[in-house]
Amino acid sequence: MTNILIYCDIDEGAFELLSWGKKVKDSLHATISAVLLGKGAKGKAADYFAYGADKIYWSEQAALTDFYADVYADALFQIANTNDHDIVLIGSTRRGKELAARLAQKMQAGCITDAGGIELKGQDLVVHRYTLGGNTLSSEVLKTAKKVISVLPKSFEKSVKTAGQGEALEVSLTLKEPKTKIVEKKGKAGDAVSLEDAQTLVCIGRGLNKKEDLPLVETLAKTLNAEIGCTRPLSHEWQWLSEQREVGLSGKKCKPRLCVELGISGQIQHTVGIRDSKVIVAVNKDKTAPIFEMVDYGIVGDIYEVVPKLSEKLKTV
C-alpha cells in the first residue's frame, strides 16, 4: 500500500495534483491524502475531497499564519511521518520548491523539483523534467524509499469535481519559530491576466523596437481574441509588460490552441512555455531563427510589415 500526500500553497495546484492522484491510485494501490495548513484550512476540505482526496490533514495553528518554508516543512514532515506517507507531491510554486527541498531533507527522501510530468512504469514513478536550461527533457526515478516530488503548475489536467467524501483530521503539530521574518509584503501591480487559461496567445519578443509599438501587437491580439504574452526581456529588463505576462521557464507555461510568436528568436527558455500549444505560428525577419524549427506555420518577414496586414486580413475572416 502506497500512501501519497499532496500539498500546494495554491489550491488550484493541489487540485491538479489530486486529479492526477485519483487517476493513478488504483494502479498504484494508493491512498491519496492532502494537507491544508493555515487560516481557513478546514473550510477548504470539501473542495479537496471533490477533486479526489481520500483523507485530509488540516491545521489552523497560529504558527502557520505566513508561509515560512521551515515551519511548513516541519508541519508536513510530522504529518508524513506519523501517518506513514512515502510519496509527497508538492506544487512547484516558488514557495513549493523551497518547501520540497527542506521536507526531503527532514524525511531523508530523494527529491526531484520542477517535474513536468509523472509516468507510471509498473509501481515506479518516472519523472520528466527539463534540464540543462530547458534544452533537454530528462526521465528520472528516485531510488530512495521515500520520495518528494515537486510538480510544476499545469502539468496535470484538473478533473471535474465530483461529490467526494472523506475523512478530515485535525492534526496537532509541534512548530518552532521560523528563522526568517517577513517584515513587509508589497503587492504587485494589478494585472490579473491568466495566460495559462488562454485559448489563443500572441507572444512578443525582442523584435519589438520600443514600448510605444505595443499597439501593433494589441491590435492583432484583439482581432484574434487573444491574450498577450512576452519573453523575459520585455517583462523584466524593460518592463514594457507585466511580469504575469512572461512566458517560459521562469514565467508561465501555456497550452493555447493557437500561439502566435512575433519577433521571437526561439530561445529555449521561452519556448518551453509554448511547446504544448496545438498550433504554433511565428513571424520573424531572420529565416534562420530557431523558432522556425518548432512552428507549424512561419512567415519570414518584419513584424512591422506583416502584423498590421495579418490583423487586417483576419478582420475579414
Binding site: A109, G110, C111, I112, V126, T131, L132, N135, T136, L137, S138, S139, E140, V141, L142, K143, T144, R275, I280, E293, M294, V295, D296
Partner: peptide
C-alpha cells in the same frame, strides 16, 4: 538518490 533513465532533446513534431 536519483537515477537518470534518459536525457534527450525534446522531439518537435511540427
Amino acid at each position: 538518490e536519483t537515477e537518470v533513465l534518459s536525457n534527450l532533446a525534446p522531439v518537435e513534431q511540427r
